Amino acid sequence: MMWQAVIVDDERLARMELRALLQSHPEVAVVGEASTLDGAIERIRLTGANLVFLDIQLKGEFGFDLLARLSKDVAVVFVTAFDAYAVQAFEVQALDYLLKPVAPARLASTLTNLARRGGLDIRTMPDPADEDAVASPPERLALTARLFLRLDERMGFLAVAQIRAVLADGDRAIVVTLDGRRWQVRKPLREWVLRLPEEQFLQIHRGALVNLNEVQRVDEWSHGSFHVHLRGESTPMVMSRRFASRVRARLG
């Protein structure tokens, strides 16, 4: 598959360096450059580009803001001098995260991954049931991490430590925060199970993941299941018999 790429960076020299590196990869054609987000949108629209190399900190702009303006068939690779945004990049499902100065071998690895994914919706996470996903599970988030993702219908930051519970909602999820608010996010529960710190979060039901610090008490209920009472929640959550067995095995 031939990739039509636009390089978005407010430093001309950085654009030139990346363009030079990409010359060694005939599967990628650089069809445009931009120094602003509006310029990037225009170049993508005019060229039909399906790949963007995107700097995060532009003059007066934040690279993450571009993602809400892109269609899902446009792959995004972040290229930045700052490693602090790696977690956020993963959460918005960018293809990769390259640190400046970009190493040729690292760029080659990114493009190999891009070729492997081919024409798939590149901002759709692999199903954990997939062999590759099982073989290489994503790195877990730290409790101190902050995520940048779509909350309801807007992009925003979410601190992992502020999550009280995550509830299944079809192919999405509802994140309950410590202030009692409920946010719909475009990530299924299975992804949160794989990513949230397991010493802090516990799946108690096929449809519920809870923050252990927020558990006030657990009451026996019926047929080996339990009611889990969370701080700030008037209705208890059910811990099913099957998951109760897993909890005993894990926590003793």
Rank of each mutant, 00 (worst) to 15 (best):
M1T: 11
M1Q: 11
V6H: 03
I7F: 02
D10I: 08
R12F: 04
L13S: 12
A14G: 00
R15K: 11
M16G: 09
M16S: 12
E17V: 11
E17H: 10
R19P: 00
S24V: 05
P26S: 13
V31Y: 01
E33M: 02
E33P: 00
T36Q: 02
T36N: 02
L37M: 06
I41L: 15
E42K: 12
I44P: 00
R45F: 00
N50M: 03
V52F: 05
L54K: 03
K59G: 05
K59W: 15
G60Q: 09
G60S: 08
G60H: 14
E61D: 08
G63M: 03
F64M: 10
L66W: 09
L67A: 08
L67D: 04
R69M: 06
K72S: 13
A75K: 12
A75M: 07
V76Q: 02
V79K: 05
T80R: 03
T80M: 06
A81V: 13
D83R: 14
A84N: 07
V87E: 02
Q88V: 01
A89C: 03
A89G: 14
Q93V: 09
Q93S: 13
L95E: 13
L98W: 06
K100I: 11
P104I: 13
A105T: 14
T110Q: 01
T110K: 01
L111R: 04
L114Q: 10
A115R: 13
R116S: 12
R116A: 15
R117P: 00
R117Q: 15
G118M: 09
G119P: 00
I122C: 07
I122D: 03
R123L: 02
T124C: 12
M125I: 02
D127K: 06
D127H: 12
P128E: 00
P128F: 00
P128N: 01
P128H: 01
D130R: 14
D130S: 15
D132A: 15
S136C: 05
P137R: 10
E139Q: 14
D152P: 03
D152L: 08
E153Q: 12
E153H: 11
M155I: 13
F157T: 14
L158Q: 11
A159F: 01
V160K: 06
V160T: 08
V160A: 07
V160M: 06
A161M: 09
Q162M: 08
Q162S: 13
R164W: 12
A165P: 01
L167P: 00
A168H: 03
R172L: 02
A173Y: 08
A173G: 06
D179R: 12
R181P: 05
R182A: 10
R182L: 08
Q184H: 13
Q184I: 12
V185W: 10
K187E: 14
K187C: 04
K187I: 10
L189D: 09
L196Q: 07
E198L: 12
Q200H: 15
Q200M: 04
Q200Y: 11
L202Y: 09
L202G: 02
I204E: 04
H205N: 13
A208V: 04
L209E: 10
N213M: 08
R217G: 02
R217Q: 14
W221Q: 02
S222R: 12
H223T: 08
G224F: 11
S225Y: 12
S225M: 02
F226D: 03
H227T: 06
L230I: 02
G232S: 04
E233I: 05
P236Y: 14
M237F: 15
M237H: 15
V238S: 05
R242V: 14
S245K: 12
S245G: 13
V247I: 09
V247C: 13
L251G: 11
